[in-house]
Simulated assay, not measured.
Amino acid sequence: MEDSSNTDQTFLRNRVRNHLIPVLREQYNPGIENGLNRLSEILREEAAWLNSTVDLLVQDATIESGNELISISAPFFRSQLAAVQRRIVRAAIERVKGDTRKITFQHTDDVCRCAATGRNFSLDLPDGIRIDGSPDKLVVSRNSFPGNRNVAKDTVHFQYTLFVYGFQDTTLTIKETGWQVAFRVVTPGEIPPEKFYDSRIAFLDTDRLNAPLTLRSIRPGDRFTPLGMAGSQKISDFFINAKVPSCDRKSCPVLVSDGRIVWVAGHRISEHAKLTPGTSRALEVSITAVPDDTRQ
């Protein structure tokens, strides 16, 4: 008995089989099916060979491998061709999370582009995958937000007031969570392009901010307008959609200007505070975890 879905033209596979292939056969190549089958077999065999070759390269490049983490040599990685680099990234991600679902070409290309600079960077990818790069190594791990993993199970409450006398360079340590937040006033021309790919760094238009600012913990019902969106969204919904681990949500700070959340730290800025072609001055904000042995 034939599957009734095989005749449903809403499926792309059926439109290809019933419409595209006949046109190609009649107007371009009578042996199109044989050619496509042959090409498919060749690509399958070559992909198997490439994967086995990349597996050997990943073994050579691996510095450290553990539970949901793999660290590979950045100089070795940068010495490879772009096509090999992308396969190494996908192979490393597969070892960490078991598959490469939701990992697109754009994701792997972003990793390669940032790694090519030889500078520090961090990228958050789907399913909690995080890439931390430095001049020496690339670390692929399963945690999308490297916060204090020892925070209490209940939400941590804190609030700090900043820039009472205007914007200036400063650093604040959130003692309740172990986060360190650094602020720096810059011009758009000073910003290296790769910094825009680091989710732990935000750039906010100072003309769209009203001092003083507040850095505080998340409150029930908090909403913001994520970059690229027109309407507001509950932060709780944003975390669910972004697959942020629940333990990280409890210690995540938000930056507030005039009652409006302009940055969910480590994740997304608000549409209202983004840089524009007319931006003359920006507030660079970065967040890092303070090592346990250096906290006061």
Rank of each mutant, 00 (worst) to 15 (best):
D110Q: 13
A152Y: 07
T104N: 07
H157G: 07
D99R: 10
K97D: 01
Q180G: 12
K153S: 14
T104C: 06
N148S: 09
D110M: 12
R119T: 12
V111P: 04
V111F: 07
Q168L: 11
V156T: 11
D109C: 06
I131R: 03
L172H: 12
Q159D: 05
T177D: 08
K175R: 13
E190S: 12
I131W: 02
F163Q: 09
P188T: 00
N150F: 15
E190P: 02
I174R: 07
P193H: 11
K195E: 12
R184L: 10
G178K: 03
G98D: 07
D109E: 14
V164L: 14
F183E: 09
H157M: 13
F145A: 13
G128R: 10
K97A: 10
G166L: 06
N143L: 00
T104S: 15
T108A: 15
P188R: 00
H107P: 09
Y165M: 11
N150C: 12
F121W: 02
A182K: 12
T117S: 11
F145K: 13
Q106S: 15
R130A: 03
K97W: 03
A182F: 06
G178H: 05
P146C: 07
E176M: 01
I191P: 05
R149A: 08
R149L: 08
S134A: 05
Q159P: 03
F163S: 03
F121R: 04
N143M: 01
K195G: 02
S134K: 05
V164K: 15
H107Y: 14
Q106K: 14
N150D: 14
T170A: 13
V111K: 03
A116F: 07
E190G: 06
W179M: 05
Y160C: 10
F196V: 05
N120G: 01
P193E: 11
T117G: 01
T170M: 14
E176N: 01
I174D: 06
R130C: 00
P126I: 06
D127C: 14
D127P: 03
T161K: 13
R142L: 11
L123D: 00
D124N: 12
T117D: 01
L123A: 02
L125V: 04
D110E: 13
V156E: 04
H157W: 07
D110I: 04
L138P: 02
H157K: 14
L125F: 07
K195N: 11
A152P: 06
F163T: 05
L125W: 04
S144G: 10
T171E: 12
P126M: 06
G133V: 00
S144E: 00
K102G: 05
D124V: 10
V186A: 10
D136W: 02
T171A: 10
R130L: 05
Q159N: 05
F196D: 06
F158W: 09
T117H: 05
L162P: 00
R113V: 12
L162M: 03
I174Y: 09
F196P: 08
H157A: 14
Q180M: 14
G118M: 09
V139E: 11
G147V: 02
K175W: 10
V139A: 09
I174H: 05
C114M: 03
V140R: 02
K195T: 02
P192F: 06
P126C: 08
F183D: 09
P135S: 09
V111A: 02
D132C: 09
T171Q: 08
G133Q: 01
S122L: 11
